[in-house]
Simulated scan of single mutants.
Amino acid sequence: MKKYLAELIGTFSLVLFGCGTAVVSGISSTGPAGVGLLGISLAFGLSVVVMAYAIGPISGCHINPAITISMFAAGKIKSSDAIGYIIAQFVGATLASGVLYVIQSGAPNFVMGEWALGANGWGPGYLGSYNITSAFVTETVLTFLFVLVIFQTTAKWGNSNMAGLAIGLTLVLIHLVAIPITGTSVNPARSFGPAIFAGGKALQQVWLFMVAPILGGLLAAFVWKGVFENSVEV
């Protein structure tokens, strides 16, 4: 249960810090606290760095169903643990979104928008208005790269002391590219939580942020197993 609780807390923190930054003081902010695209990207990436060192020794700090499924596919986690991790991650993301909703509902003139609480999406009316093809390709390819970095940096020949920082910085880079396209998911739980509260198009479109990251993660697992796992440069 310690591992599952750690995953719940880690995912809760990722969503609260990341989506909270986007909603409270991000791109749409009109006040002096606006942090923009770079600030939001750093919030998500630094959340992973902090949690990697806080809960990594307990659960491995997946805090992302796409990572857990990829680890299972690569034979690095048992099915029973994978199921427990995924449930904990979705619960953590949903609780964080609920807390963010309570906080935001106290703001003057608060109205739940179509993609509220940092929900992911695509199409007309959503940030850069990119189409579904752009959204799917973005989420699949960037999750593939993200998970491949995780496999490589946490391998037996990797630098375990620096893995959390490398993974977090990779997530920063991913957000810098993907925020205008999809708001950046690469994490089904991160998308699910806000969508449940936002409803509308966010909930209608959440399927893409379940399928594409899992597909990208599985591709990374297969490439890792087939190409890199037993290959060490001499």
Rank of each mutant, 00 (worst) to 15 (best):
S97M: 11
A96R: 10
P108F: 10
P108N: 05
A82T: 02
N109P: 01
G98N: 11
Y85D: 00
S105W: 01
S105T: 00
T94R: 11
G106E: 09
Y101C: 05
G98P: 08
A82Y: 00
A93D: 06
V111R: 05
Y101A: 13
G113A: 14
P108K: 11
Y101V: 03
F90D: 10
S105V: 00
V111I: 04
Q89S: 13
G106P: 11
G84S: 02
F90I: 05
A93Y: 10
D81Q: 15
Y85V: 03
M112A: 09
S105R: 00
I86A: 05
W115S: 14
S105C: 00
V111E: 12
Q104A: 13
S105D: 00
A93Q: 07
Q104H: 08
F90N: 07
I103M: 12
M112V: 15
G98L: 08
A88N: 09
Q89E: 14
V102I: 12
Q104G: 05
I87E: 10
A88F: 00
I103N: 09
I87F: 02
T94H: 09
M112E: 07
P108V: 06
D81K: 14
S97T: 11
S105G: 00
A93C: 06
S97C: 08
A107P: 02
G113S: 11
T94Y: 06
A93L: 08
G98V: 07
M112K: 15
A96N: 08
G92R: 13
E114A: 01
V99A: 10
F110D: 00
I87T: 07
S105L: 02
I83A: 15
L95G: 00
G92M: 05
